[in-house]
Amino acid sequence: MEESDTGLVLRVRRGDAAAANRLLERYLRPCRAVALAVTGSEADADDVCQDAFVSAIERIDDCREPARFGGWLLQIVRNRARNLLRRGEVRRTESLDEHTVADGPSPVLEVERQELRERLRGALATLSETQREVVLLHDLEGWRHGEIAERLELPVGTVRSHLHHARRRLREILGNLEAER
């Protein structure tokens, strides 16, 4: 059985590096998804999720309810990402090279993927920040409605509604773009 957030947080407070690593495995990807929802930039999301996670471990004693570590951590991510936006330091576009690896897909395939990413990014930009968080946490990270509700401090019904509208909007926009091609 997976160890609870509470157990892991208490172990981190006692200086247990393995527990911190377990939390990292559990939350770094969702942190990135939330950072991406706020900034719209993958490169910035990578930086923000790292900084926010490290900061959370530094301030672990401030996490008043260890059972709600996930929500507390995601709030740190959100704040950091918003600060980045406020300072106008977000990298709006990423060079193709950033995601091209030497033994990765062919340049043509990579161009297509980059194009798809741009279309998706444009479609996500039409959603509210919360809708983006919900759809990325659900459809990319595989979190269930209840998990999202708990960690975003929203009623489950609201999460379902956000997901429904976000998916519908994404399909409309991506469908229109497809028809225009």
Partner: peptide, 23 residues
């Protein structure tokens, strides 16, 4: 619920080397 849009283009592990570096 409408069918989920394919968001795997944003999956950090599509570039495993980069994501491994971040982790």
């Amino acid at each position: 619920d409408p069918e989920a849009a394919d968001l795997t283009a944003f999956d950090p592990e599509r570039d495993p080397r980069h994501w491994s570096h971040v982790k």
